[in-house]
Write a protein that binds this DNA or RNA. Structure first.
Lengths: 333, 333
DNA sequence: GTGAAAGCGCTAACAT
DNA sequence: ATGTTAGCGCTTTCAC
C-alpha cells in the first residue's frame, strides 16, 4: 500500500506538504505542487480515508435507517437522500429495520460509534430509551417519516399524515359519498384513519368502527383479502379509503372480483402516490405524500448541521400532502 | 468522548486489558473482567470503530454500487444484500450510478480508498479502465446483474438474460404465436431480444427488425407510448414480449387503450417478475429473474473472501431464469 | 494474565 | 512556503 510517506520521499518533501497538496487547503508553491502531483501519479497514491477520519474526527458518511427499501415510499426516500448526500460529497451508510425494533436499536448504537457523522432515521419506533445514548454521543440526528408521536427533543421532518387522511375523506365527501369503508394497516396508520373520520365528522357523519378494517400488512393482497371478505359479509360502501396505495390496488382488485366497478359502483382512494398508482386500472386517486421533499429537507437539515450551521433545533416540520385526483373516484350515484 | 484509556484508568488496568475484554479474544481473569466491564458500563464507553479500522485495516463495511433503488429489480437486490451482510455483522455503504458512468467511476475510486473491505458492483458499465485500479488496491470485487460482456478478470454472479429472452419467446411459440412484437430498452437489453429471436429461429421463424421497438427507457409510459404508436401505425402482432415487466405493464395498457384485449387479442409477456406483475390486470406472464438468489450468491462470495476463504476465482456464474405463467398470455386464436 | 511499546496513515498546530 | 512535533484511539507484538 502506497502511503503519504512514500509520496513525500519520492517528491523530496515531507508528509505535511503532500497533505497540503492533496487537500488543497493551504498554498503550495507551483514547483513543489508539480513534483508532489507527479509522485502521486507515478505511485498511484490514494489517501487512506480511515486514517483521515481518525485524524479529523469526521467520516463524510451519513447513516440512514429505514424499515425497508422494497417499498416504493422508502425507496424514493433513500434515492433522494443518496442524491442529496452525493452532491455534498457524503457517503451513505444504510441499514434496514424490517419493522424490528431490536434491529433498529442495534443499528442505532452501532452507527453512533463514530462511523457516521450524522444519522437520519426514517422509521417511527419507540426511541425513548435510545435518546440518552444519542444525546450523549453528540451525533446529529434527524427523524423523518415519523407518523406516531415523535420525541420532542429531536428535529423531525415529516408529513401531516392526519391531514392526508382528512384530504382523502374530504375528497370523497365532496363527491357526495356517505357510506365509507376504510382499510388500514393498524395501528401504524391510525392517524390517517383519524383524518378520514374528521372529514366525515365535519359534515356530521360518523364512520363506525365496523367500517374500519385492519389489514394485516400493507401489500395489495392484504387489501384484497380484507375488502373481499367485507363485501362478502354484506358491506355496501360507495367508497373505500385505503391507508396506502398498495392496499388500494388490492381493494380495487377485490371490488372488481366481487363483480362491482371502480369507480361507478365504488370509489377507491389511496394515500401515498407511488409510481404505479398512475398506471393502475383505473388510475388511482390518491393523496400524494411529499416524500422526496421530506427526504430533501431532512437531509438538508442534517448537512447544515455538519457544515457548521450549528445544531438543528428540535421540533417538528410538517409537510402538506395533496390530493391527486384520477379515475378511481367519482361522484356517488 | 470516553476512550479506552478512560476505562483503563477507572478499572486500574491498561488499555490492552480493556481491549482484551472488549474483544473477548484473549483470556482475562474473572476479577479484572468484572472491573473493566463495570467501568465500561459506568462510563458508557463504546469503542471507536474508526480507530479500530485504522489499526486492523478492516472496516466491516461492504460497498454496493447500483444504478438506482427506485426500481423493483434493484431494490430487491439491495434488500437481499443488506440482509446477508447484516447477518455477518457487516455494514452497507451504498452508492447509485443513475446510469452515469462518470458517477460510477467516482464511486469506485472513492470506495476503494480503504473505506470498504469489499465491493459489490450491480451495474454493467465499461470497467476496463478501472480494472487496473481495482486490481492494484487489492479490494475484493464481485460483479452482479451484469448483462453485457463482463470482464473476465473478476468473479461475476449474474443471470442468463439471453435465456430469459429465449424462454419468453419459447413460451409464446408454444402457444402458437408467430407475429411477434418486441419492446425493449435498447441497447441495454440487446441480449434479451437475441434470446427471443433464437426461440423463434428454432422454429424457422424470423423476427424482423421492424418488429423490435426500442423504448426510450424502462417505465410503463415508455412501453405504452411505443406500443400504441406501433399499433396505430398498423402493427398487428398476436403477442408482445417486453424486455422488462414495467414496460410490459405499459404495453398492456396501450393494447387496451387501442381497443384490444389481453390476452384474447394480444398476449403480453414481460421479463423480471416484479411484485406488481402478479397484481396487474390481467396478471402478467413473465420470465422470473432470480435476483434475490443472485444477490445472495454474490454476497456470499464476497463474504467468503473476507472471512479468509481466499480470493474468489474470476469467472461467470450464470443463474437460470424461469417462466412464470399468468393470465396475460394465451394460445393464439 | 497483564503491561509496555510501537505503529496504523493521516492532520493540526506551531516553528522555521 | 515547508518542516517539525504531536497526537487521533485502537490493536499487535513481545516482555514480564
Amino acid at each position: 500500500m502506497v502511503t503519504m510517506r512514500d509520496v513525500a520521499v519520492r517528491a523530496g518533501v515531507t508528509k505535511q506538504t503532500v497533505s497540503n497538496v492533496v487537500r488543497g487547503r493551504v498554498v503550495v508553491s507551483e514547483g513543489t505542487r508539480a513534483r508532489v502531483e507527479a509522485a502521486i501519479a507515478e505511485l498511484g497514491y490514494t489517501p487512506n480515508l480511515i486514517a483521515r477520519s481518525l485524524a479529523t474526527g469526521t467520516t463524510m458518511t451519513v447513516g440512514l435507517i429505514v424499515p425497508t427499501v422494497g417499498n416504493p415510499f422508502y425507496s424514493e426516500v433513500v434515492e433522494e437522500v443518496e442524491a442529496q448526500l452525493e452532491r455534498r460529497g457524503y457517503h451513505l451508510l444504510m441499514a434496514t429495520t424490517r419493522g424490528d425494533e431490536k434491529r433498529a436499536r442495534r443499528h442505532l448504537s452501532s452507527l453512533s460509534s463514530r462511523s457516521v457523522d450524522a444519522l437520519l432515521v426514517a422509521d417511527d419506533f419507540d426511541l425513548s430509551e435510545d435518546l440518552r445514548l444519542l444525546g450523549e454521543c453528540g451525533l446529529p440526528v434527524v427523524l423523518c417519516a415519523w407518523e406516531i408521536d415523535p420525541p420532542d427533543t429531536l428535529p423531525v421532518v415529516t408529513i401531516d399524515y392526519e391531514r392526508a387522511g382528512y384530504l382523502a375523506g374530504r375528497h370523497l365527501r365532496d363527491l357526495g359519498h356517505q357510506r365509507l369503508l376504510t382499510v388500514a394497516d393498524l395501528p401504524a396508520h391510525r392517524v390517517r384513519v383519524q383524518g378520514v373520520r374528521r372529514a366525515f365528522a365535519e359534515d356530521g357523519l360518523g364512520v363506525p368502527d365496523t367500517s374500519v378494517l385492519a389489514a394485516p400488512g400493507t401489500t395489495p393482497e392484504d387489501g384484497y383479502e380484507v375488502t373481499l371478505a367485507a363485501l362478502r359479509a354484506g358491506a355496501r360502501p360507495t367508497a373505500v379509503v385505503a391507508s396506502t396505495d398498495a392496499l388500494a390496488l388490492g381493494v380495487m382488485a377485490s371490488v372488481r372480483r366481487y363483480g362491482l366497478r371502480v369507480p361507478e359502483d365504488i370509489s377507491v382512494v389511496g394515500i401515498d402516490d407511488i409510481p404505479q398508482a398512475a398506471h393502475a386500472h383505473p388510475p388511482l386517486t390518491t393523496v400524494a405524500l411529499p416524500k422526496r421533499r421530506m427526504a430533501q429537507e431532512a437531509t438538508a437539515l442534517l448537512l447544515r448541521t455538519l457544515t457548521g450551521g450549528g445544531p438543528a433545533p428540535p421540533g417538528v416540520t410538517l409537510l402538506d400532502p395533496g390530493v391527486q385526483v384520477r379515475a378511481s373516484s367519482a361522484p356517488v350515484r
